[in-house]
Write a protein that binds this DNA or RNA. Structure first.
Lengths: 182, 182
DNA sequence: GTCTATATCAAGATAGAC
DNA sequence: GTCTATCTTGATATAGAC
């Protein structure tokens, strides 16, 4: 069942955003899906295989977003807003999957690590390319630094938001928007 | 041996910054220290006890830093620089312990969670209090938002730095400093 | 493709000797 | 205070029936 495979990836992604890659088990997955552990092992022989599938999904989503932004006729402001608001969606019901995987980085299997690297790099590239349009006169290093600030800030804010139970991400986004205008 | 207890906390903190709370085991600790698992269990009966000890250490460090800043005659700029540079030290050889514990939040025992909450709150309070001095005319919400941005950004930058192997934290700090002046 | 059953291993934890 | 020994549980993983 190809659908079951998708279902497992969906659930794994959700649980990784809640508890992290290390903390989730085939038992967690099988109980929620109402199947046996062995059934999950059929679709993803090793946990590493599941990790690769999940990170490929995350990378694919990001690549799709990147293409959409690049091929769109949106203004720079609209592109930035989309990028920022995407983080709100991605943080619903957990932390950002990228942050979760970054935290577990040292414990990740090699193939999964490489995917996380690709994803992290692409996130920065996307916002860097958007910023290039807005600050045409800006020096390359300044654009890069600002891209680092934006991406880092979004990810960090989601962490504090979950722990403190306060709307920190929206406030951080407001502040970033203000800084970009001013 | 009271010294052994300290030694265990030191090592646990180091490994949590590398691999996270969930991923470390009594076996990891015992192997590095050259003692048995049972010996670690003597000092910290349950993993939760060790987690509490580690987070108490982190909280204590932060409270000491807070007192030092409050009772000092430093300028606002110097205080901010100290706060920022402290993150560089804390990120040496792993990610920030606070980020690591935040990522594992859903898997933490209740007592440890509460400590992580306290720590996260105190970090924000410290930078908020510093900012209050510099922007006397600033509205409270603006100061709060900017505090969120600074703290979130520092934590996120450390994550990207480790994954991408680039000096992202220094660049982010430069950018924050620039924003505060401009 | 999903199941039962089971193997293997590591983790958290405890009892009791020294 | 540290050890050996052991227990329990849960996790990854495999074999083979249906």
């Amino acid at each position: 069942m190809e659908n079951r495979k998708t279902q497992i990836i969906d659930l794994a992604l959700k649980l990784i955003r809640e508890k992290g890659y290390v903390a989730i088990s085939y038992d967690d997955l099988s109980k929620v899906l109402g199947v046996t552990k062995a059934s999950i092992h059929y679709h993803f022989e090793k946990k590493e295989d599941l990790g690769v599938a999940v990170t490929e999904r995350v990378l694919q989503n990001l690549q799709d977003f990147s293409s959409f932004i690049t091929n769109s006729n949106l203004t720079v402001e609209e592109k930035i807003n989309l990028f920022l608001e995407r983080q709100i969606v991605l943080s619903d019901g957990g932390i950002c999957p990228v942050s979760s995987l970054q935290s577990d980085y040292e414990s990740l299997p090699e193939q999964v690590r490489q995917k996380v690297q690709e994803i992290s790099q692409l996130e920065i590239t996307i916002i860097k390319n958007i910023l290039k349009e807005t600050i045409k006169e800006g020096r390359a290093e300044e654009i890069e630094s600002f891209a680092f600030v934006i991406v880092s800030c979004l990810k960090g804010a989601i962490q504090y938001e979950r722990v403190l139970g306060m709307p920190i991400l929206p406030q951080a986004i407001n502040e970033i928007t203000r800084l970009l205008k001013g």
